[in-house]
């Protein structure tokens, strides 16, 4: 066992209202992509899952079709409250963003040409990019992957981030490699 969480791995129950409100918050905060915000709320703020459990759920969400965080919401909802939990997580995650995006769509025509609006959006987008980058680095520091596991991370990063190869291809090649690496090291 060489990948380890930082000791905070409470296997606790999470109630229906708590699930819904948690995902409502994730949806509302989820600027620039949901994963870092989901991690902030689920791991850091409410401690529903340990760092490693969260990464594992997100990894499963990633290899399935659909947004990784939406799949993660399905898995987390089912884990704590079954089918009802799934629906609560999905509705919670989507409700506010849907209202906001249609409002923005209506407002956009009027305010798109205001320089301050454009500059603010660009600044926020740059911040959101940094948020994703920082979240990945923070997770690596917490999980302390072994050298072979870190090699898998770097291969995935290089293939998708630098070479910009199609994700399905990368997944098909790297999942067997990642599982083989875990098996050879006896990580499970």
């Amino acid at each position: 066992m060489t990948i380890e969480s930082s000791g905070d791995a409470p296997l606790r129950t999470v109630g229906k209202a708590e699930l819904f409100l948690g995902f409502l918050k994730i949806g509302l905060l989820g600027f620039g992509g949901i994963a870092p915000w989901a991690r902030h709320v689920i791991v850091e703020e409410r401690r529903w899952l340990s760092e490693k459990e969260f990464a594992s759920v997100l990894g499963v969400g990633q290899i399935l079709p659909g947004p990784n965080t939406m799949n993660a919401a399905v898995l987390i909802g089912d884990r704590f409250q079954g089918v009802i939990g799934v629906l609560l997580c999905l509705v919670g995650q989507m409700a506010l963003p849907l209202v906001i995006v249609t409002t923005l769509g209506i407002a956009y025509e009027r305010f798109a040409s205001v320089p301050e609006v454009q500059a603010g959006l660009v600044g926020a987008a740059a911040g959101a990019a940094g948020l994703v980058l920082g979240t990945a680095i923070k997770m690596v520091r917490r999980l302390k992957p072994t050298p072979p596991a870190l090699a898998i991370s770097l291969l995935a990063f290089a293939a998708v981030g630098i070479m910009q190869w199609p994700l399905p291809l990368v997944v098909v090649v790297l999942v067997p490699l990642a599982v083989a690496a875990a098996a050879m090291e006896g990580r499970a």
Binding site: G32, V60, A188
Partner: peptide, 23 residues
């Protein structure tokens, strides 16, 4: 168990990649 262990480093690499492409 192996699948879940193996997917952890993969998820890390892909989040890092999406940070880079967003930048």
């Amino acid at each position: 168990k192996l699948l879940r262990e193996g997917l952890v480093p993969l998820a890390l690499g892909l989040i890092l990649a999406s940070g880079l492409s967003m930048m």
